[in-house]
């Protein structure tokens, strides 16, 4: 079984309203050294398959079709066999 973690976040230049608000809240809690906050999504998958290459190909396809919106989001992933 392959364990996949997909991180979806907003592209640079796209307004991250949640990140901004969270940043403001952290500052008001006294974490004054926080310089930037970005809020994204973590999607965890368990996938059956024979090779990492095969899984990677599928994951990229999933990200492009459904898990991220290429208009505003970027994705990163991490694949491990367990």
């Amino acid at each position: 079984m392959w364990f996949v973690k997909v991180n979806v976040g907003l592209k640079k230049g796209v307004l991250d309203a949640q990140g901004k608000a969270t940043h403001q809240a952290l500052l008001s809690l006294g974490f004054s050294n926080v310089k930037e906050v970005g809020v994204g999504k973590l999607i965890e998958l368990q996938v059956e398959g024979n090779s990492k290459e095969e899984i990677e190909k599928q994951v990229r396809d999933m990200c492009k079709k459904l898990l991220s919106n290429p208009v505003i989001e970027d994705f990163k992933y991490d694949i491990e066999e367990q």
Binding site: V14, L15, A17, Q18, N69, V71, I72
Partner: peptide, 17 residues
């Protein structure tokens, strides 16, 4: 419609949240 690609762009969280 934007997700389906029938219209360009997308709709995101209101600026004021």
């Amino acid at each position: 419609l934007t997700e389906a690609g029938l219209l360009p762009g997308t709709l995101t969280r209101n600026e004021c949240l």
